[in-house]
Amino acid sequence: MKKLWLLLLLLLLIVADVFLGSVRLPAAEVWSALLSGESSDFVSKIIWNFRVPKMVTALLAGMALSVCGVQMQTLFRNPLADPYVLGISSGAGLGVAFFVMGTSALGTYTPFPWLSDLGTAAFAWIGALAVMLLIVAASKRLKSNMTLLVLGIMIGSAGSALIGLIQYFSDAPALKSYVLWTMGSLGNVTGNRLLIMSGLCLTGLLISVFNIKDLNVLLMGEQYARSLGIKLSWVRNKIFVATTLLAGSVTAFCGPIGFIGIAVPHISRMIFNNANHRIMIPASALTGSCMMILADIISQLPGSQSVLPVNTVAALMGIPVIIYVIFKNRAVEL
């Protein structure tokens, strides 16, 4: 019942996201562009090349980050865990920093300037993957998930330190484009890039569904999981692969989008009052895509000419929600 209600809300937001934007378009024209294709080139271009891909990106990013957040919170039995807790965002950030600022910091030229958009995504993804491989390698030796959490935080800090170093030596334009990447954007993912991102995210979501059974047991502690004959390192690796596919891909194409991954699991727990992952995974996917699309609508400032960075909007919109959840409910308890 609640899921149906959320699904309706999502449909409403999807429609609103396509109809509203910084360029004001008459609703009738948007309709005809969507349904019959009989509209001016200008309107149809805005709708099909910009708004629809952006809406799909927001939908995917919201799902991916939230489903990833649930898994991290369960694995570490920690309500503060988010998709980036293992250092994936600093891994991705480091990749992008190398790509965007490395050339200016090292005093050479960008070898493939025509590749720069896809190059950013590729380097971000490679950075995230490198961090994940490091964690998987360490995971075999580390028995406790808590030790792993500390390792993740250390890797994150090391990444940030290296990024700082590159920033220090890079020139102003390169620095600016890096900072813009960190603010997040849903608007740069179209065509082939959207196809790649969808493929990666859907694979990650599929793996997450196959993680449900193990996640439920992990919520009751590592010792219990092992006493049931579960191989912890195998389960952890499955979760890490899902995390990299989900959070790594979103970060690669949209930049590090904070808040959604940590907040949405708590909001879903509050709405559904059931921590069973058979409920939590689909519920978080739904709630997350609603939040992300809402953030996108707000960031367009419908009716005005300017656009806000989506990261800022997500945080400003969501932090009050989280504070409300904390005070009103004890939903943060895991």
Partner: peptide, 20 residues
């Protein structure tokens, strides 16, 4: 003192024992 999962029903908790 077995760790407990919050917002997890008793029936679902018991059922995880049949993991295999």
């Amino acid at each position: 003192q077995p760790p407990r999962a919050a917002h997890f029903s008793v029936r679902d908790t018991v059922s995880t024992g049949r993991y295999r």
